[in-house]
Nucleic acid binder design. Structure first.
Lengths: 342, 342
DNA sequence: AGAAAAAATGTGTACGTACACACTAAATAC
DNA sequence: GTATTTAGTGTGTACGTACACATTTTTTCT
């Protein structure tokens, strides 16, 4: 079991002191040509890799990471996200990392901006947040970049100005829904795309999904009527009942986690239809298991949150590299494999 | 940014030396009742967590992990598995870990046993392997346990005697296939379960999948003829062509990664049918994209391998805990979401 | 040539932990 | 009462890195 190469081994091999080796490694100058040559040769020859543990220990700083996510109490979609974050906090509690979680109201952009500004003021090594509001997020990102704070986002739209992004290809996820639905299409079928968005804050996401959905049918020359219905009222069920009664739609693609609302409305009207939607909310899962929803696409908020936090933590602790943009696989869930996701 | 608590802080709080604190922490005795009390109080009060980095640095050992997996050259299913392992090796190359990968012939149990024995002889801190052969694997596990070597397995059957297992619920994955297929069933449908297993080495896996598949239909009172066909010959295509010609089957569930063979045979006979099978081999992916396979269940060999190796590595390096048994979600793949998996 | 400045190199220390060792004080033995 | 054991405690050092500081060597200038 051979020992790993240390800076000491390099010093010995190059016949200089560890101080000189250190200066070469950190390019802090004050090294003669000959010594530089010898040390560089030795570094290459012995394939030196600095020990991240010793480096971190020596650096002896407690890194501070702030997290800004939507309040799960306002939208249950974010519950798993918070769980994922807490798991990572637990996982790294023994390390020199301090992580704080702050919640904003997903229906109030100003709540996001205000807490965001506070956090910029207070300062930190990294800030991880959910960029629900495009304008406000970009404004925040600009400030963070100016301050040189490491940035991470997840779930929503990636941006050029963020260091790390974890999320999904929403256009593709629309296509996936279309493919799933396509097996249920009959000559008489009419398809409804339902956007349920009480807070008006993820219109772009829903649009991308719709575009993907429609693109699939265009590519495959399935001609079939596809209607789009926006529901922004607070009385979702009533609006849905009206829509379903008026239009003869028997296939539904719901672009948000409120998929169960469609299943509910159908049940109330005593109608059968194919429903495909998003996310593993308890209500959705229950409908899936009852056969009222055929498929759910799982956006894995928990995994998104934990992956993005983990990347930031390990970047700070071990200087581990991460991709600027990480797109997760799109998970198709039916009444059976749901058990393996709970 | 407050510093983390160290044993020095504990020593100061308890008004003793760090040596005494250390003796308390490691329960090495030689501590007076009063000191013990004070130190324990301080430990609890300040919520002391030892710094895993410093601990590992001080321990100063290079851990050795051996890995024994089937040769990807003999069965392409294992290609991603090797890739996942190499990625983890790369990820931790700067740490005091030495990882070696050895390959056995998945058609020859004796090749597994022989290399396994060699590895036990040579010794190591942990051994990760794929327990393709039940009897031989248990024999190896017994030896490893006696030697006190940390053990990990993945992909195949979990065992009481292994420290860490990553895999799938195969019975459930059979049920998932059944649910997928159920949407294609018509009154006249006949279903074929195809076991293609040239090497006779994963009969148990295939059986579990079949059981799950049949259980779903039993639960749902779908009465529909389900035939089982075992194919162990080397000329798979011919055997399949004969089967398809003789039996009027229009829905196929293939329990192994050789799913493309069924699609191929159907194509040769110019027949259309619903095919559901396993794994993202290039041949399968191509059939999926051509519409010759409807769904694939992705067993994620790459993820399985990297997760299990990562667990062992982090257990040794940071003493991070892991679950004894980790079942992964069952991934449903169609022609669209496949893009997010490649 | 000798002093002063500049360049190059080496040494020491800290990070937090773990353990060997040295030390102190009390207890036992003769 | 002194010697020896024993329980209890404290000190020193190493792990590998990073950087401040001390020291040596070389260069420059008068």
């Amino acid at each position: 079991m051979k020992k790993k190469i240390t800076i000491k081994d390099i010093a010995r091999a190059a016949n200089v002191s560890i101080g000189t080796v250190d200066r070469v490694i950190h390019k802090r100058g004050k090294v003669s040509e000959t010594a530089l040559q010898k040390v560089n040769d030795a570094l290459k020859e012995l394939d030196y890799k600095p020990n991240p543990l010793a480096r971190t220990l020596r650096n002896n700083v407690v890194y501070k990471i702030n997290i800004l996510i939507p309040n799960p109490a306002k939208d249950p979609y974010w519950v798993p996200c918070e769980l994922g974050i807490n798991a990572i906090i637990k996982e790294y509690e023994a390390f020199d990392i301090e992580i704080s979680v702050l919640l904003f109201d997903p229906t109030k952009p100003e709540s996001f901006s205000q807490i965001g500004n506070d956090l910029v003021e207070k300062g930190s090594d990294a800030l991880l947040f959910v960029p629900l509001f495009e304008k406000e997020s970009n404004f925040l990102l600009e400030k963070l970049n100016r301050k040189g704070i490491l940035t991470g986002t997840f779930n929503s739209l990636p941006s050029k100005h963020v260091d790390h992004y974890v999320g999904h290809d929403l256009f593709l996820s629309g296509r996936v829904a279309a493919k799933l639905v396509s097996d249920f299409i009959q000559p008489s079928s009419r398809i409804g795309i339902i956007h349920i968005n009480e807070a008006f804050n993820n219109a772009i996401h829903m649009r991308q999904k719709e575009n993907g959905f429609r693109a699939y049918f265009k590519d495959h020359h399935v001609d079939c009527e596809i209607l789009t219905k926006n529901i922004n009222t607070s009385n979702v069920t009533e609006a849905l009942r009206n829509f379903i009664s008026e239009e003869k739609v028997n296939i539904f693609f719901v672009t948000t986690s409120k998929t169960y609302e469609v299943a509910l409305a159908l049940k109330q009207l005593n109608k059968k239809a194919t429903v495909v939607g998003y996310d593993l909310l308890p209500e959705n899962v229950s409908c899936l298991q009852n056969g009222e929803i055929q498929f759910l696409i799982h956006q894995a908020p928990r995994l998104q949150a934990s992956l993005s936090l983990k990347s930031l933590v390990e970047k700070l602790l071990f200087n581990k590299e991460f991709p600027k943009k990480q797109l997760l696989p799109i998970n198709i869930i039916n009444s059976e494999n749901i058990k393996s996701y709970l």
